[in-house]
Amino acid sequence: MRFINSVFFICFCAVTSFAQGGLKIAYVDMDYILDNVPEYRQASSQLDSKAQQWRTEIESKQNEIDKLKNELESERPLLTADLIQDLDDEIEYLENQLLEYRNKRFGVSGDFIVQKRQLIQPIQDQVFNAIQEIGDNRDYDFIFENSADALLLFSAKRHDLSEVILKLINRNSRGAKKESSDVLEEIGDYKSVEKAEEEDVKKEEKAQEEEARKNEREVLIDERQRKRDSLRDARQIEFEERRARILKEREEREKERDSIRKARENN
């Protein structure tokens, strides 16, 4: 219910902000940030190795219990009731011990969860501080988290602040004195909302200019084609007229020769 109320609240804020003249949003990918922080990767690798040792111990203890169970089942017909009860009690004790150990290592408040939280918490604090810094610097209305557990169904890459967060974390880890605005300017592939919108407008204008030039070229090509067609038609007409004239002259000469030949024959 709290989540639904939060969603309605965000939607209400979004509608209100749009009505008042625009909404500035961004997001960060926490999984990506953690994967690209060397200190976290190293500590996480050490924790994973330790967790694997715990799993191996749990598996070994479970194998011992399974072995005792199998031995008890195979020897049950040969054992007295008291001995069977003792073995059952021992197995139950070992199972309880194993359950306690499993909860101690991997339970809700177990070592793995606690150490994982302790490992992530400093990075999360740095991310939160960097987000606050960027949000204040760039006047964002909302900055969301886009990770495996987050409910962010679509996010345009131009709104991704993850690289900026990493830059700020690295700056702080080195003790540098650069302001967040300077870090933002140093990141060539980062685009603020305004810059992204400006580039979209420029792209649209460029596309319109290219379309206009294309149309102009097509008109010019059509005009040239019409001129060529007109010239070709004129030449064709001239050729036909000249051919007709030549044929007529040839026909007249033929008639003249026939007349002369007939006159000679009559004489």
Rank of each mutant, 00 (worst) to 15 (best):
M1L: 15
F3C: 08
I4F: 15
I10P: 05
S17F: 12
A19T: 08
A19E: 09
G21D: 09
G21R: 11
I25C: 12
L34Y: 05
L34I: 02
D35Q: 14
D35S: 14
R41Q: 07
Q42M: 06
A43F: 03
S44N: 11
K50N: 07
K50V: 10
E59R: 13
S60C: 09
K61C: 07
E64F: 03
I65E: 12
D66C: 05
K67C: 12
E71S: 10
L72V: 03
D82T: 03
L83M: 02
L83I: 03
D89I: 07
I91E: 12
E92V: 03
E92D: 10
Y93W: 09
Q97R: 07
L98N: 10
K104N: 12
R105P: 00
F106T: 07
S109C: 06
G110W: 11
D111A: 15
V114I: 15
K116V: 00
L119D: 01
Q121I: 02
I123R: 04
Q124G: 05
D125C: 08
Q126G: 02
F128A: 09
A130T: 06
G135V: 01
G135L: 02
N137S: 09
D139L: 06
D141A: 03
N146A: 06
N146C: 08
D149R: 08
L152Q: 09
F154D: 08
S155A: 15
K157Q: 12
R158M: 07
H159Y: 14
D160S: 01
L161C: 06
E163F: 04
V164L: 10
I165W: 00
I165E: 00
I169H: 00
R171H: 13
G175F: 01
A176L: 13
A176W: 05
E179N: 05
L184G: 04
E185T: 03
I187P: 08
G188D: 11
G188V: 06
D189W: 04
K191R: 09
K191N: 04
K195C: 06
E198Q: 11
K202N: 12
K203R: 10
K203T: 04
E204I: 03
Q208Y: 05
E211S: 08
K214I: 08
E218P: 00
V219I: 04
I221D: 15
D222L: 09
D222M: 05
E223G: 02
R224D: 12
R224Q: 13
K227G: 07
R228Y: 10
R235L: 14
E238R: 09
F239H: 11
A244Q: 12
I246A: 10
E251L: 13
K255A: 15
K255D: 09
D258L: 15
R264A: 11
N267F: 15
